[in-house]
Write a protein that binds this DNA or RNA. Structure first.
Lengths: 347, 347
DNA sequence: CAACTTAACTTAATCGATTTAGTTAATTAA
DNA sequence: TTAATTAACTAAATCGATTAAGTTAAGTTG
C-alpha cells in the first residue's frame, strides 16, 4: 500500500522544512527558483494533493454544502439535487446529501451532524413532520452559528434565511386556466391539507383561476389529502369516492401520483380523457410524460431551482462578512407542458 | 453570532486545561468526579459537540462514504442511494454523493477530490464513457492508497474490489419463463447491443428461458438498441417497426421506458394487453407500477443493493488491517412483480 | 521522617496544512 | 570595516481534538 504524500513526507525526502515545501508549491517568492522547481517536480511526479480535511480545519471552511431533503425517490427532488450538484461543482464545492424521510428527528440529527464542521451552509426542504411540529430550533441554531441556510420548495416562515420557491400559486393557476379556456366548467382539485405550504398555495391558484373567470367554486370539488408525497390506501379510497361522487369535466392534482391514480378511476368509470374529463397535474416527471394518455403538467424546473439555491448559498459563503442580514425570496417560474390529457385550445 | 464552543473555549471559561475538558467529557477516571460533572454540565448547557473535521484529521478517518453514480435522475440509482444512506446512517457513516453524468473526466475528478481526505472509501457504478475507454487508473489509484472500493451494477473486470450485482440473466429468465408458462409462444425482446453488459446478460436470460422449454427462438424477435439508458427518436422508430412487423404474443424489455413506449405502439395497433400480447420489463419503477395496464416487472431491489454495497464497504473500513486481499461478488436476487400486463397462471 | 504512591491535573506531541515570525549567511552601503 | 539589507530558509503557532508523558501536592508506607 502506497501511503499518501504529505508536506511532511516530501520535506523529509527533499531534506528541507515543511514550510519550504508548502511555500514552494504555492509559488512563494521566498523560495529560490531552483528549490521551487525541484519540489514542484517531485510533487507532480508523485501526484501530491493536499489533504482536504487538514485544509478545512486550517481555513475553517469545508467548501461543502449540506443538502437535506425529505425524500430522494422523488423525481422533483432528484432534479433539484442535480441542479445543486452542477452549480456546486462549477464553484468548487462539494455536496453532502442527507435524507430526512419526512421525519423530524432525522432532520434535526442530520443537521446537527453536518453542522459540526462538515459543511459551510445548508440547502433544505423541510420535512412534513417539521412543518406540523413547527419546531425550527435546529434551523435557528445553525443560522445563529453563522451558517447560511437556503430553503427551497417546502419552506417555513420566520427563519432568517433565503428562500427559493416555485411560483406554486401561479403554476396551479396556469394549469386550471388552461382547462377553463378549453371549456371545462366543473373542475375538481386533489390537493393537500393547508399546513403543507405547497398544497395550500396550489389550492389558492386553483381558486384564483376560477375567480378570474368569475366561476363559482363548489367546495365539494376540493379534496384535501393528508399526504402530498405518496399515495397510500386511504388516499386511494378517498380519490375514488371523490371522482365517483363528483360530476367533473376537469381535474387538477398537486402531484403526478394523484393524477395517475385518478386517471385509473376515471377509466374504470368508463369515461375518457380528455373528452369527458381533462387532467392537469403539478410536477413534470416521467409518469405524466409516459402515461396513456400522457398528462398535461405544470413543470417545476427543479434543476433550475437547485442551481438557484446553490448559487445563492455559495454567494453568501464567498462574501461572509457581508452581513447585511438581508434575506430574499426567489421564485422559479413554472411552465405548462401541454400533452394528451387536455383538449387543444382553438386560438 | 454565537461562536461554536470548542474544548479551548470551555477550558478557558472553566479555568482548566484543554485536556482536562477533553478527558472530563470522555469520562476519564483521571479527572475528579466533581470537575467532571461541572464540565459536563457546562458542555451540555451550551450544547457542545466536537468538531468533526478536527476528529477526522486526528483519527485519520472521516466516517464518510463517497458514492459516485452516472445519474441520479434514474429511479434505480435513486433507490440504491436510499439503501446506501440507510445502511450508512445506521452505522454512523456520512454519505457524499457525486454525479459523473456518464462522463469519464468528471468521474476521475470527483474521485480525486473525495480521495484527498474527504472519504474513507467508495461505492460506485462506473460511467458509460469509462467502460468504453477502459481507463481505470483512478480506481486503481485510490485502491492503491488503501481506500476500499465497492462497485455495483455497472462493474468492470480486473479491479481489486468487491462487487454487488443484479442477477440479470436469472431475472430476465424469470420474466420470460412467466410469459411462456402463461401460454405465450411468440415472445419478442427489446434489449441492447451486447457490449452493454446488462443488456447482454438479460438477452441471455431470454434465450435460456426458451431453451428450458425447448422453444426455438426466432432471431427476428430480438431487437438490439444502442442505448439502454434513454429512449431517443431513432429508438422509438425501431421499436415501432419491430412491434408492427412481428406477430408477437409476448414482449420482454430490458427497461421500463422501452416497455412503456411499446405499450403505446401496441395500443395504437388496436391490440390489448395482456389478452393479445403480454408485457414484462426489467426494473420495477414508478412507471411500470402506475401505467394502465400496470406492467409486470422484474424488480432489481435497488435499496437492498445499496444496503449490501454499503455494508460490505463499512465492514472493510471497520476492520482495516484485515488485508486478506480477498474480493467477492455478491448477487442481489430479482423478483417478479406480477401486474396487469401478463395473464394469471392457472396453477 | 524519608521514600514511595496516587489523585488530579497540565504539557506537549500529533493529525496535515498554512503563515507569521524568526534565523542565518551573503551582499551592499556608509 | 562595520552596520544594514536581503535572499532563502526554518521554527513555531494555529485550526480543534486526543492522548502519552510529565508535574505537582497530598497521602501512605516502612
Amino acid at each position: 500500500m502506497k501511503r499518501k504524500l504529505t508536506l511532511k513526507s516530501i520535506a523529509k525526502e527533499m531534506d528541507v522544512s515543511i514550510s519550504t515545501v508548502s511555500k514552494a508549491l504555492r509559488d512563494s517568492p521566498e523560495i529560490s527558483e531552483e528549490t521551487r522547481e525541484k519540489i514542484k517536480a517531485y510533487a507532480k511526479l508523485y501526484n501530491y494533493k493536499p489533504n482536504n480535511i487538514a485544509l478545512s480545519l486550517k481555513n475553517r471552511k469545508t467548501n461543502t454544502i449540506g443538502v437535506i431533503i425529505p425524500q430522494i425517490v422523488h423525481h422533483f427532488f432528484t432534479t433539484v439535487i442535480r441542479g445543486i450538484e452542477a452549480e456546486a461543482r462549477e464553484n468548487n464545492y462539494n455536496v453532502i446529501i442527507c435524507l430526512s424521510n419526512n421525519d423530524f428527528d432525522k432532520e434535526v440529527l442530520n443537521m446537527e451532524l453536518l453542522a459540526n464542521g462538515s459543511t459551510d451552509g445548508f440547502i433544505l426542504s423541510v420535512s412534513k413532520e417539521t412543518m406540523q411540529k413547527e419546531d425550527y430550533h435546529h434551523l435557528n441554531e445553525v443560522i445563529e452559528q453563522g451558517m447560511p441556510v437556503v430553503m427551497f420548495d417546502r419552506v417555513v416562515e420566520g427563519i432568517p434565511c433565503d428562500r427559493v420557491l416555485i411560483n406554486d400559486t401561479q403554476g396551479a393557476k396556469k394549469g386550471v386556466t388552461h382547462m377553463i379556456r378549453s371549456g371545462c366548467r366543473k373542475i375538481g382539485i386533489i390537493t393537500s391539507e393547508d399546513y403543507v405550504s405547497v398544497g395550500r398555495l396550489r389550492t389558492e391558484g386553483y381558486l384564483d383561476a376560477h375567480d378570474d373567470f368569475g366561476i363559482e367554486v363548489d367546495e365539494n370539488r376540493i379534496l384535501k389529502l393528508d399526504n402530498i408525497d405518496d399515495l397510500d390506501e386511504s388516499a386511494k379510497k378517498r380519490i375514488k369516492t371523490f371522482i365517483e361522487n363528483n360530476d367533473l369535466d376537469g381535474l387538477f392534482t398537486v402531484n403526478e401520483l394523484f393524477a395517475v391514480y385518478a386517471a385509473r378511476v376515471i377509466a374504470k368509470a368508463g369515461k375518457t380523457v380528455p373528452d369527458d374529463i381533462s387532467i392537469v397535474c403539478f410536477t413534470d416527471g416521467e409518469l405524466s410524460e409516459h402515461m396513456m394518455p400522457s398528462i398535461t403538467a405544470v413543470s417545476q424546473h427543479g434543476e433550475e431551482m437547485g442551481r438557484k439555491a446553490a448559487s445563492i448559498l455559495i454567494n453568501k459563503l464567498e462574501r461572509p462578512e457581508d452581513e447585511t442580514e438581508e434575506y430574499g425570496t426567489s421564485y422559479i417560474e413554472t411552465s405548462l407542458i401541454e400533452r394528451e390529457s387536455t383538449r387543444k385550445l382553438n386560438r
